[in-house]
Amino acid sequence: MIDSHCHLDFPAFDHDRAAVIARSQALGVRKMIVAGISRQHWPRLWNTVQTNAGLYAAFGLHPYFLAEHHNQDLLALREYLTRYQDHPKLCAVGEIGLDFLLTDLDRQRQIDLFEQQLELAAEFNLPVIIHARRANAQVTACLKQAKLPRAGIIHAFSGSYEEAMEYIKLGFLLGFGGAATWPRATRLQGVLKRLPLEHIVLETDSPDMPPAWLATGQRNSPEQLPQICQQLAAVLGISSAELAAQTSKNVQRLLNLSA
């Protein structure tokens, strides 16, 4: 299995990061994509992926932290992408996108930042990892305008079937994780059932987005991905082995992860 979205560089893992990675890989989660959120986090993110086999980096400016981002951060992102563009550990630009759920975040500034990062992804021929909350129509519009040479992943997809198909038409993969394991997530599970397996990927978003079996406030980790896979395979009516194999193939095809 491949965890297509996690944050193993976060302080929540500082006391046992190596052990979590070892346990996850022993359970079959062989590769993990660590998504960036801000310029300040990129150095520790890169150190995390550099010092652990099977981890890969994405650098980006997350819309949730809009107040922390400055114009020079885009220049810094270009510098990072230039420095590591030929490194096998760099796999995407992300986590980028739009968050319209949080009303105190300036929408136009979010859009401007998102579009500029899409331009960088196109320039460096990299896929994108996208955060989209209550913003699927605007994200889709930006993607159509950007005309990326490579597509990407819509992280933690929670939209409608119609929105999913708009992304799929653009070549995107849709990330599913802990949110879809909750009994109340019947609408999301209904969407999942209708999607082609070739466009689904698995993720944890750890330490966040816990699956249904973790207690409130308990840290999520890539160790949970096998059980997430089992739960979602049951929703789809297929074996967990089939879901694991196909979703890993999907991520590998998109990101060209090294062995």
Results as ranks from 00 to 15, higher is better:
L173Q: 05
A146G: 14
F124Q: 14
A259K: 11
A215I: 04
Q138K: 14
Y64Q: 09
V139G: 07
D112Q: 12
A19T: 01
S4H: 08
L188A: 09
S38H: 06
R109L: 12
D208M: 09
N47E: 12
T48V: 06
F157L: 09
T103D: 14
E119M: 01
R219Q: 05
I153W: 13
K147Y: 07
Q110T: 00
P127C: 09
Q50K: 11
G217T: 12
L102M: 02
T140E: 07
A215K: 15
P210C: 09
G177V: 06
G94A: 15
Q85I: 02
W46L: 06
E68I: 04
A233D: 06
R44I: 06
G171A: 03
L55E: 08
I153G: 12
Q108I: 06
R23A: 11
G97T: 01
G217W: 09
L118V: 03
H70C: 10
P196T: 00
I129M: 07
A135R: 08
A259W: 04
I200S: 03
K147S: 14
T82K: 06
L120W: 01
P196F: 00
A141M: 01
L188K: 11
H62A: 07
K193F: 01
T247K: 08
C229P: 03
E115R: 14
L225M: 02
A151G: 15
D3K: 02
I111M: 10
E242H: 15
D86W: 07
T48L: 00
E242M: 13
I238R: 11
L120T: 02
D112G: 02
A135K: 08
E68Y: 03
Q108K: 14
Q25K: 10
M32P: 10
M32A: 12
H15A: 03
E123G: 05
G36W: 01
A245E: 15
I153N: 05
Y167M: 04
L173D: 05
V235W: 10
L120P: 01
L45K: 02
R194P: 01
A241P: 02
A67V: 05
A241S: 08
G152S: 03
D99P: 05
L113A: 15
R78V: 03
W42Y: 05
T103P: 04
G97I: 00
L195Q: 05
M1G: 04
E242Q: 14
S160D: 15
A146H: 12
G159N: 11
A19W: 00
L232N: 07
A233T: 06
E166Q: 13
A121R: 04
L74Q: 12
R187Q: 10
I130C: 08
R133W: 05
N52T: 04
E223R: 03
A121K: 05
L8K: 01
D73F: 08
R17W: 02
T247P: 08
R83D: 11
R78T: 11
A35E: 02
A185W: 00
R253M: 07
L254R: 04
Q145W: 03
P88Q: 14
W213T: 10
I37S: 11
T186Q: 11
T140L: 09
V93Y: 13
A151D: 15
A156M: 12
H69R: 12
H87F: 07
N220V: 02
A245Y: 11
L202M: 15
